[in-house]
Write a protein that binds this DNA or RNA. Structure first.
Length: 789
DNA sequence: TCTATCTATTGCACT
DNA sequence: AATAGATAGA
């Protein structure tokens, strides 16, 4: 442990060893904040005799949690020789999870204490599902869907919940008609969710907070368990999450939050940077530690990133510095079209991977829709890549269908899931029958499942004659067999409980005996066949939940809880979570790249309307969030950074010409190198500047030369004059075939590079050439086989 | 009742 | 472009 501590800088060390009381760590990009949390965890266990189960670390994504867990395990394993051995720490591990999965855990144990009608078997609705419920409510209230869209209402409801505010006061400034409509919809939504025994993402947090507020005993219990709490990416927490933390730390106040206000990019999810400011207010004794040394990026990359973020008004002053080398220039490329931009990126990546196949590269974009062009270009060049986000595995229709089956089996009141599967595969339970079931459910104020039970139960059936809803025999028998199917599965869950059946076996049974698989296999479309394959994959995903090790290291079935966990995982896991570190090339959104780092980063689509996104252009606050997002993107790069934009691109159905991003304009051009083949926005910009400075027009033919010399910094002033004098005169002859400083050359391996220096003459001349992505190389002209380019 | 086909709508980031 | 919803024909 001492050895590990000695690798920390003084600030990191302080953050690690200040274990008691509230701590606020303001950690700049790449300053080792994750390291602080992992080492701190190990330190708590080894030096402070804290039991692992008394430590909680909260992360932003499941992926981050997984990664941190691994790092903690690795760290503890490397400390194998010390105190850890004396205590049975080896198996027990600190809890590392997201806010949402943490809350799910608590609610699965205690939600019934809330006495709102929810039971332990509640299902979790993702954003899509909750939107569907809202849509249903709007229709039921016969409100015009166009006037008040489901998305809008969802946002408002979510906003109130996450801000920890009462909906009524949250929307007090809305026009009365709208306000009433929203309140009605929200009330109806809440009722629907309760009937279905379902919680949305926000409810997970909210119900946990309410539970802890209401029940002193439970609050005390969790305070006692989680005596040391750490929160990563604190800048992206929202007020409701802050309240949760306050409740959890009431007794011990051993809370350490780590964050960077400059990287706050989840305002749209109601994250609030004010949580950072309020932290000191709520915990007056908080110790504030700043981590300002960056270990990740080159000086040049950091300079560019700082120049951009400096434009923000709302910003805590914090300067990031690094001992890392200057590094290469940040490369800039203007493409003519979106396609050409992708082509440039793909061919550059090919060059880079040819030299070093192990390089970790990322292509980052603002929106998922941009990925398509890059995928096509990469496929064309036969470059392997991994794509994160977009349509996740768990979002596919067939997977959601099977998850819906599982959800209904564990919680048949889940109306949404039930409607989803009742007629898939077709069971002759179509719209008409369903409509009647809904009607009964509505009149009797029960769930669809209960309504079905009434219909199929002969005794209760007499109630139906009163409401005068008739079911044909055929429909009743279809309903009976559907109900029987589900009940059969439900009985089978007892076998899982007893450990006589594994989760994956069970899931396989559901897929087969529901007729779902058969439906896909008997289809003659290729798409359905690949869907069937996805289901096999789903079964193997379930297999991961089959067996767990207990304290003695004996494997046993994890039982029903495991099945529940598996379903929850499918609901809470996002596409961001399938980032595969083993892959060399990853395509993803900037949001998804948060917390990650890469040797080479391509940040693409730097255009007004794309990045910054069109919807943020007229709002200063949103623009600042975009700028922080840009800062996050830039600071992902360790060694090499490429920035690209296209003059024209297809946008929906039309073609648009976008201005270069304002963020490009904010970057000092001495850090940039222009790789564009034709004259670009940047070169024009430079020309303008130069003309303004010198007042002499430049000519296109020597533009590259002028540009090159412009890039030399002021301290090279003397050298610069020399070079101009030494360089050959720029007449037509020279331009024809001679290589001289300032022009671009093509190299077999390194691609296109800029000639910086020439020593000697003719074939024997020594050239110093800068190749984007590979750095500065010295070459002998006659061996290098250079072509002008 | 089911299936295929057409039409209309809508389009950021994510737990 | 992709998807939800409506509609017609089997």
């Amino acid at each position: 442990m001492r050895h590990i501590l000695s690798t920390l800088n003084p600030q990191q060390l302080e953050a690690v060893t200040t274990t008691e009381g509230p701590v606020l760590v303001l950690a700049g990009a790449g300053s080792g904040k994750t390291r602080v949390i992992t080492v701190r965890t190990a330190y708590l266990m080894t030096h402070c005799h804290v039991q692992p189960q008394n430590i909680l670390s909260v992360t932003f994504t499941n992926k981050a949690a997984e990664e941190m867990r691994e790092r903690i395990v690795g760290l503890i394993a490397s400390l194998g020789h010390n105190k850890l051995k004396e205590n049975p720490y080896n198996k027990a591990l600190p809890l590392v999870c997201t806010f949402h999965s943490f809350c799910t855990r608590i609610l699965r144990a205690y939600i019934e204490k809330l006495e709102e009608g929810y039971t332990k078997n509640f299902n979790i609705y993702d954003a899509d599902e909750s939107e569907q419920v809202i849509k249903l409510c709007i229709r039921n209230l016969s409100i015009d869907e166009k006037k008040i869209t489901p998305k809008f209402v969802q946002n408002v409801i979510s906003g109130a919940k996450n801000r920890g505010e009462d909906l009524e006061s949250y929307i007090r400034d809305y026009p009365p008609a709208k306000r009433d409509a929203i309140l009605n919809i929200a009330a109806s939504y809440e009722k629907e969710m309760k009937t279905a025994n379902a919680l949305d993402f926000d409810d997970l947090l909210l119900k946990t907070v309410q539970l802890l507020q209401k029940d002193k005993e439970i609050r005390r219990k969790y305070n006692e368990i989680f005596r040391y709490i750490m929160v990563d990416e604190y800048q992206d927490t929202n007020p409701l999450q802050f309240v949760l933390l306050q409740l959890l730390t009431e007794e011990h106040q051993n809370i350490c939050v780590v964050g960077d206000d400059a990287q706050s990019i989840y305002g749209f999810r109601h994250a609030d940077i004010r949580n950072i400011l309020d932290f000191e207010k709520y915990y007056p004794s908080a110790k504030v530690i700043k981590l300002e040394q960056n270990y990740r990026s080159t000086k040049t990359i950091l300079n560019v990133a700082e120049a951009v973020i400096k434009q923000n008004v709302y910003r805590k002053d914090k300067k990031l510095w690094t001992n890392n080398p200057e590094g290469e220039k940040v490369y800039y490329y203007q493409a003519l079209t979106g396609e050409e931009e992708a082509e440039f990126v793909a061919s550059k990546i090919k060059e880079i991977l040819k030299i070093d196949p192990q390089k970790k590269i990322a292509v980052l974009y603002r929106t998922n829709a941009q990925s398509r062009l890059f995928e096509e270009a990469l496929r064309k060049h036969q470059i392997k890549y991994k794509i994160v986000g977009g349509f996740s595995f768990y979002q596919r229709a067939e997977i959601k269908d099977i998850v819906a089956y599982l959800k209904v089996i564990l919680n048949p009141f889940d109306n949404l899931a039930l409607e989803r599967i009742i007629n898939i595969p077709p069971r002759e339970l179509g719209e008409r029958t369903l409509e009647k079931i809904r009607e009964i459910a509505k009149q009797m104020n029960v769930s669809l499942w209960e309504a079905i039970s009434i219909i199929t139960d002969e005794k209760a059936n007499s109630a139906l004659t009163e409401i005068a809803i008739q079911f044909p025999k055929r429909a009743v028998s279809s309903l009976c067999s559907f109900k029987g199917l589900i009940e059969e599965f439900q009985r089978e869950t007892a076998l899982i409980q007893k450990g006589e059946k594994s989760i994956s076996e069970f899931v396989k049974g559901v897929i087969e005996r529901s007729g779902y698989l058969q439906m896909l296999l008997s289809s003659n479309s290729d798409q359905d066949h690949s869907r069937a394959e996805n289901l096999y994959e789903f079964v193997s995903a379930a297999a991961r939940y089959d067996e767990v090790e207990d304290e003695e290291g004996v494997t046993k079935s994890s039982g029903l809880l495991g099945l529940r966990e598996f379903i929850d995982y499918a609901a809470l896991t996002s596409s961001t979570d399938d980032f595969d570190e083993a892959s060399n090339l990853t395509l993803m959104t900037v949001h998804a790249a948060k917390g990650l780092e890469f040797s080479v980063v391509f940040l693409v689509g730097l255009e007004q309307g794309v990045f910054p996104h069109i919807r943020s252009l007229d709002d200063e606050n949103q623009l600042e969030e975009e700028r922080r997002l840009c800062y996050v993107a830039l600071t992902r790069a360790k060694e090499v950074l490429f920035l690209t934009h296209a003059k024209k691109r297809h946008f929906y159905l039309s073609e648009v010409e976008n201005e270069p991003s304002i963020f490009l304009k904010e970057m000092p051009d001495e850090f940039l190198e222009d790789l564009s083949y034709s004259s670009s926005w940047l070169s024009a910009e430079r020309k303008k500047k130069k003309q303004a400075k010198i007042g002499v027009p430049t000519y296109d033919s020597v533009e590259a030369v002028a540009e090159f010399f412009r890039q030399k910094s002021v301290r090279n002033e003397m050298q610069r004059t020399e070079e101009i004098e030494n360089s050959p005169k720029l007449n037509d002859e020279n331009l024809a075939d001679e290589i001289y400083p300032g022009i671009y050359v093509l190299h077999e391996k390194y691609g296109r590079g800029l000639v910086l220096k020439k020593e000697g003459k003719g074939e024997a001349a020594k050239l110093t050439v800068s190749f984007p992505g590979f750095g500065v190389k010295k070459l002998i002209e006659k061996y290098a086989k250079l072509k002008k380019g």
